[in-house]
Amino acid sequence: MTLDTALIGEKVEQARRAVAEGDCDAWLVFCRETDETAEPTLPYVLGFDVVWPTAVVVGPDESTVVLGRHDAPNAERLDVHEVRPYDESMETALRETLAEIGAETVAVNYDRDDSAADGLTVGLYRRLQDLLPEREFVSAGEVVRRVRGLKSATELDRIRAAAETTVDLLGTAATAWTPETTEREIVADLHDRLRARDLGTAWAWDYCPTVHLGGESDVGHTLPGDHTLGQGELFHVDFGVRQDGYAADLQRLWVRGEPSPGLESVFEDVRAAIDAGHERLAAGVPGHEVDAAARETLIDRGHPAFQHAFGHQVGRVAHDGGTLLGPEWERYGDAPRGEVRAGEIYTLELGVETEWGYVGQEEMVRVTESGPEWIVPPQTALNRL
Rank of each mutant, 00 (worst) to 15 (best):
G284S: 04
H70C: 06
V211W: 03
N109M: 07
T37C: 10
I8C: 12
V65M: 07
A117P: 06
G141D: 10
E373C: 07
G220V: 11
E36N: 11
R127Y: 13
I375V: 15
T41D: 13
M90K: 03
E268Q: 14
P304F: 07
D189I: 00
V237S: 06
L190M: 14
V108A: 09
W205V: 12
R301T: 07
V29T: 07
E62L: 00
A55I: 03
E279I: 05
C208L: 00
G326W: 05
A272W: 04
D291Y: 14
G240M: 01
E369T: 10
R331T: 15
T166L: 09
A202P: 00
A305Q: 08
E289M: 05
D189W: 08
F310T: 08
W254P: 01
E91D: 14
E264R: 15
E344W: 04
L194S: 02
H278R: 15
K11L: 14
A161C: 00
R197V: 03
R366W: 06
N109A: 13
S217T: 13
D275E: 15
P209Q: 10
D157F: 02
A116T: 14
E21K: 06
A272L: 04
L348W: 05
V376H: 11
T154L: 14
A294C: 08
A204T: 07
G215H: 09
V83H: 07
E330W: 09
H212Y: 04
T181E: 05
S89M: 07
I8A: 05
E185F: 09
R280H: 06
L132S: 07
R366A: 12
A381T: 13
H319V: 14
V58F: 10
E363Q: 12
G262N: 10
A248N: 06
E373K: 05
V56M: 02
P336Y: 07
V255N: 02
A20G: 11
D49W: 02
G230K: 04
G230P: 02
F30A: 14
T2A: 12
V66C: 01
H312V: 07
V147Q: 00
I345L: 12
D291C: 09
V255I: 07
W52M: 12
